[in-house]
């Protein structure tokens, strides 16, 4: 296993754990956190490909990771705000009991 493959394997494991969390948890906040973990796994890929890429002077991978972190921050803020608003409406953040579209 080469160095790059080790990083890719780690990031896919992280992605899978995040996916599992997002699909199985009942707490809406933890579902959001699972999605954040998946984004982080993608960031590891960007940085690993940049590091093992043809020349480190092409910093596209690094830039992509920076932008991805900013987008993830915005996503977390809006997502958590939505969860808080939803909690105020239905008094629960249990995703299994949030099953009606009617207010």
């Amino acid at each position: 296993m080469t160095g790059l493959q080790a990083y890719l394997l780690l990031s896919s494991l992280l992605f899978a754990i995040g996916l599992a969390g997002a699909l199985t948890r009942r707490n809406a906040i933890l579902v959001l956190i699972g999605i954040e973990l998946m984004l982080n796994a993608a960031n590891i890929n960007f940085i690993a490909f940049w590091h093992y890429g043809p020349a480190t002077t092409y910093i596209t991978g690094v830039m992509f990771a920076i932008f991805s972190i900013s987008v993830a921050a915005a996503e977390a803020a809006v997502g958590l705000a939505i969860i808080v608003a939803a909690y105020r409406h239905s008094h629960t953040i249990d995703l299994d009991s949030m099953n009606s579209l009617k207010g």
Partner: peptide, 23 residues
Amino acid sequence: LGTFSRNALVGLLTAVAVFSVLG
């Protein structure tokens, strides 16, 4: 509240499948 959702098994299997494909 309960930790895992009712259809947790499906989610777990999906994640395992995704990981095996990626790996």
